[in-house]
Each structure stands twice: as structure tokens, then as C-alpha cells.
Amino acid sequence: MSLNEEVDLLRRVPLFAKLEPSKLKLLAFTSERLTFQPGQALIRQGDMGDAAYVIMDGQADVQVETPQGPLTVAHLKRNDFVGEMAILCDVPRTATVIATEQLVTLRIAKELFFRLVTEFPQMAVEIMRVLAQRVEKTTADLRDANNKVRELEGKLQGKD
């Protein structure tokens, strides 16, 4: 794999789509290309974050710990970007990400990520957009969940 091929792959990631090719090349050169075997974790819930990952190839599951055991909440595939939350706001990882098949990623270290965000406003805007979409989705999910809870409570009260 050469830098140029990586640049082509990075360009397909929405977050980086609007960056100039030379910056993408710098990003590729300064990032680490990491391969995960199936079952290996990229990120563990509760750890402090030191990097974000771009999925270049393969698939992964996002899981959260629940009292009943791990619960898969999302799937990640090629061109997805994951792990930026914990490094943006310095909180512990909110979920675990596990490779479900051989997974090729580009690991972007925290300092590098910050540098890119501060130096390239296009990237900051793109991240805001992605995060906003996520908040919107979470809100919708919460609304659905609330509705379900109410529905169940109603059923339970009906039984009493």
C-alpha cells in the first residue's frame, strides 16, 4: 500500500472529502496504518481516548456494556470514522469497538487530530455536521425508547 492509494481511500471518507490532496497525504503519512484481527478491540469502553480511527477496510461492531452483558448498538464499515468523541471532549470511551472481520484502519493520534481540526476549518465543520446528525439520531432513538417505556408501563398498569 502506498501513500497515494491511501490518499484515494481517505478522499472517500466524508470527513476528509473536502481536504486538499497534499493535506490528505500529510494525514496519511503522519497516521499509523493498523490492522486488527477479528475479535480484537480498537476501543474499550471506559478507557481514556488517545486516538480516532478511520476504517479503511473490513467491519466492526460498536458495543456498550449493560447489566445483561454487551449490547451491539451499531456496525461500522469502510470509510466510517470512529473514536473522535473521547478525544474531542476528554471523556472516557463511551463504547467498545470490536473488529468482526479483518479490519484495516488508519489511526489518527489525538494531537494530530486536534492539529488538523484547528488548521483546517472545513474539517471542523464536517465534524460538527457528523456530530449533529448523531445527536439528532440519538434524540429520535430516545423518543422512541420513551414511547416504548410508556407503552409498557401502560400495559403493566392495565394488568394490575
Binding site: S22, K25, L26, F29, T30
Partner: peptide
Amino acid sequence: ATMVELFADLPPDHEFFQQF
């Protein structure tokens, strides 16, 4: 050529020089 392409427009004290 690659180094010039990647690093030419970074400020000279940029930490990338040392790191990469």
C-alpha cells in the same frame, strides 16, 4: 520529493518535522 511536498508549507518549528 515526498518530504518537500508534505512539509514545505508547514512552519519551520512545526512539531511534525521532528516527529516525522
